[in-house]
Amino acid sequence: MEIALIGIGKIALDQHVPAIAASPDWELAATVSRAGTVEGTPAFTDFDELLVTRPDIRVISLCLPPVPRFDYASKALAAGRHVMLEKPPGATLAECHALTELAKQNGVSLYATWHSREADKVADAKAWLASRVLRSLTVTWKEDVRRWHPGQDWIFEAGGLGVFDPGINALSIVTEILREEIHVRDATLVFPENRQAPIAAEVAFHHPQAQVQATLDFRQEGEQTWSIEAVTDTGTLLLTHGGARMFIDGVEQGASQDGLSGEYPRLYAKMAALVQRGGLDMDLRPMTHVADAFLLGRRETTAPFHF
């Protein structure tokens, strides 16, 4: 199937383009970007022009920041195109619900992707936890925004999510592996005094019998930390490296995977299957937790942040 990639920035070039190139399901037929291009691929700077001149491209993958994404997604859906959304699927929950209804009205597929759910050991962690009683779950998600989002000021603007841009990856894993539903009960959000989105956060969740909490920080230097520890009645599970490695009571399970290995290829395989069978995949639970953290969170101010 032919697909168009919209927004040719770091994540598109690092992950989407290689995943599409390696896939037996997809051919990258066009790109839309103000500046970025992919060698050998027809490049547009205007999305409306793409929709009008390339009706043969039936699938659109959106890699734009969350705030402008709704306008592009709604145009694509209204034009009868299937749409794949980079995380988070929108700037607000209301936008995501509106896109869902628009996809239904036009009989096309819509996929809210959560790439961290496709990390190598997430499915194994879910299976291991399924038969155990959770006592506590602790998320520690600390990374260097300068390394992963160099110069991307949008991430600290209103709607950019700040530290929840990576933090939502952790929440996508937690909502996938836990048997029980959770919801935010308390949060503290740390805002640089010159920014509109938090650079760090502490979030506590309600769970039927366990203590569940998350520590998120965009100021981590040196080694990056993306871990989830689950203490149960019969042992302790630890996911590290964003879900790529898993330990049970300190013993690593299976071969380790590096970084985002396999995550985006699995997303594109799922999108191909979704388009072929029809339907929607719009799990908004991770985004609901972020929205609730903003609603409930106490605001603290810290020193200005500059890239």
Score class of each variant (00 low, 15 high):
Thr53Leu: 07
Phe44Gln: 06
Ile182Asn: 13
Val275Ala: 01
Leu93Lys: 03
Ser131Phe: 01
Ser33Tyr: 03
Trp148Glu: 06
Thr240Tyr: 11
Tyr268Ser: 02
Arg81His: 09
Asn169Asp: 15
Asp217Trp: 07
Gly167Gln: 08
His149Phe: 11
Asn106Asp: 09
Leu284Arg: 07
Leu239Asp: 11
Phe164Ser: 07
Tyr111Met: 14
His306Glu: 14
Arg69Lys: 15
Leu64Thr: 15
Trp154Phe: 15
Leu189Met: 13
Trp114His: 13
Thr225Ala: 10
Arg195Gln: 14
Ala112His: 06
Glu223Phe: 09
Ala273Phe: 00
Pro42Thr: 15
Thr100Ala: 04
Lys104Pro: 09
Phe191Gln: 07
Leu5Asp: 01
Pro198Asp: 02
Arg195Thr: 04
Pro42Met: 09
Pro66Val: 11
Ile60Asn: 05
Gly7Ile: 04
Arg54Thr: 11
Pro198Trp: 03
Leu85Pro: 01
Ser227Gly: 06
Arg277Lys: 14
Leu189Glu: 05
Ile57Val: 15
Pro265Ala: 07
Arg146Ile: 01
Gly159Asp: 11
Gly279Phe: 03
Thr41Phe: 11
Pro89Arg: 04
Met287Trp: 04
Leu129Pro: 00
Thr31Ala: 13
Ala19Ile: 03
Ile11Val: 13
Glu2Ser: 08
Asp48Trp: 10
Asp25Lys: 03
Asp249Met: 13
Val133Leu: 13
Ser131Ile: 04
Leu93Gln: 03
Pro18Cys: 10
Gly7Asp: 11
